[in-house]
Design a binder for these strands. Structure first.
Lengths: 337, 337
DNA sequence: ACCGATCAGGCAAGGGCTTTCCCGGCAGCG
DNA sequence: CGCTGCCGGGAAAGCCCTTGCCTGATCGGT
């Protein structure tokens, strides 16, 4: 690997001059020398060692993003927003997948810290377990204490700048609509119990329905298509009288739709199904999914903006609204079964 | 930010000793000192500066991945495979999105080179333009010349280790099946003209159908749902007699399905629709999409494996087979229209 | 009790780059 | 003609860490 010294030698100048030419320093360099340096750079295909640069100047330029799983459509969308802003601002992004493992999350925070990233963006539901949060908080605080910027998405239990999707409010909207349509026996396909996203959405739903949801009508599973399918099967077997199934994300809803089709249950005539997030596929399944739209890319974009802007005196918190999207999978409750 | 020197001072030892304790060096250190160092590390919340480490020891550990767009389901799936292997091998991954801009691709290669990554994995269709390829090749060669490892996915025009999806063969399978079912008027929803993936799949399709596809029955658009929808509309308007539409990826197929539904065209009774890739949603749309399955995650996993294994004497090339997945959106050609 | 071997720990040299500070040379001024 | 001031270029210090090599001490053997 060619070094700056190689370039300087080849151009017959000092490393100092070469560096100045390459970085466009404000210090003037004679045209002839400049050209010689540029020529040497091209010939040697020289690329500065980013680590040495970072060591030599305190300026931090890359930003770390910690998500549960980029290949999950939810995070894919959030990441798109994050990337857009980062690219606009000329920042490189390191994406890390925690796969919802709190321990790995802590490890990654340290790793990003070691990489001297300018900022860390944490995306994806927080955990309900206070022990886990405390550990992560402690690490983030250590990072922030040395000037690192932190922004979180959807983790209201962490300090630092935050952007929050209106999980609870969105679920409330949905609950109210279900109630208006006469649904009384509502089942819930929930994500992992440990996540605040799950508990927030359940709470909102209960509020909207006007009565807390009995634990018996909730099934916890993975936030995936298969998780939704399995949970729906269990739920239907346990409580055959349900008129509506609320999935706490669209993937699960798709799984439920699939199961119902397999069992020959008509949607929404016999059972209504609704989702959450409004992922791109929601409109393309049959029946088209009624769901709660969250501005996912916007969530990412805002968070990255917060992370890259200088810290304020106090934590900034932005809440982004949820919106009910009416499609075909939700109808009035059938009169009697 | 605490440094090793801070830790050493606090523990009352030399930086050398501190370093040895922290890195678990083979050189023995007395238990008492070891403990003092560990205590200082904890108190200062010390994390070694990864850049300084990288500078001090030549060992490269992170690997760079260059994709068109992680939030595209195709790449999301490929990335999942890449990540899996990288994590197993204890490697951090830097993901970069080129958004199909060849120029940005070259920039990112340099950037990854600057980051001293151990390997670069290039995923996603190559370009047909030889000029563009030459430029990229030159940069990759510069990287490889200094010991960097390169692996590409689906870019048969680049040297270096490669894993290739059987694009052409998969399309041939599909073409043959269409022919068997009596389809003679076949339209194609193609991705960008500049990509080899597009041209390979078109070539294979023609081969399978037994006759080259007339240019008039092809519409080029973005590899997206909306691209597919628009292209389908144009195609149908221009050639109303089509009995089958082949989308060159599943997103486009979903868009086509949507358009046909909006126009009241029955699938597959009046027009058959097939996709490519077998993305997770393919099974969930209505009618369920007949498509060509590519082992996407496997593609990623293999590529990462190649990239992390030491270079062989010659370039290794693995081809992964495509498989026709029969679902509901493809039926026999209607007798007469 | 002395010598050599063994061992733990520290010194210091890098690794590649940036940047401050200094120096030599030149022009301009008195 | 001599001095000052400016300007372009280079020497070198430092960023933080690892590690080969050296030193001082301890221990065993004789």
């Amino acid at each position: 690997m060619a070094t700056l010294a190689d370039v300087a030698r080849r151009a017959g100048v000092s490393p100092a001059t070469a560096s100045r030419v390459i970085n466009g320093s404000s210090k003037p360099v004679a045209d002839e020398l400049r050209e010689r340096v540029l020529k040497a750079v091209a010939e040697l295909r020289y690329v500065p060692n980013a680590h040495a640069q970072l060591l030599a100047r305190p300026q931090r330029s890359v930003v770390g993003v910690l998500v549960h799983d980029v290949s999950d459509p939810y995070f894919a969308e959030v990441t798109r927003g994050l990337q857009r802003v980062a690219t606009e601002r000329g920042r490189l992004v390191i994406i890390c997948n925690s796969y919802r493992d709190p321990e790995r999350e802590v490890e990654y925070v340290d790793l990003l810290r070691a990489q001297q990233v300018a900022a860390i963006v944490l995306a994806g539901s927080g955990y309900r377990d206070p022990t886990v949060n405390a550990l992560l908080d402690e690490r983030l605080a250590a990072y922030a204490a040395t000037g690192g910027r932190v922004a979180v998405i959807g983790r209201h239990r962490h300090r630092g700048d935050a952007v929050l999707p209106a999980n609870e409010e969105g679920a409330r909207l949905l609950g109210a609509e279900l109630r208006r349509l006469g649904h009384r026996a509502v089942g819930v396909l929930a994500g992992p119990r440990s996540l605040t996203t799950t508990s927030d959405r359940i709470a909102g739903l209960g509020a909207g329905l006007g009565e807390p949801l009995p634990e018996a009508s909730i099934r916890y599973a993975d936030f995936t298509r298969d998780g939704g399918s399995r949970a729906a099967a269990e739920l239907l077997d346990a409580a055959p009288g349900l008129t509506a199934i609320v999935a706490l994300n669209d993937s699960m809803a798709v799984g439920a739709l699939n199961l119902l089709r397999a069992r020959g249950v008509r949607v929404p005539a016999e059972v209504s199904v609704v989702g959450f997030d409004d992922m791109p596929i929601a409109a393309d399944v049959t029946p088209a999914l009624t769901t709660v739209r969250l501005p996912l890319a916007e969530l990412g974009a805002r968070a990255m903006t917060l992370a890259l802007d200088p810290a304020g005196d106090r934590d900034r918190v932005e809440t982004l609204p949820a919106e009910l999207v009416h499609r075909d999978s939700l109808g009035p409750a059938p009169a009697e079964r």
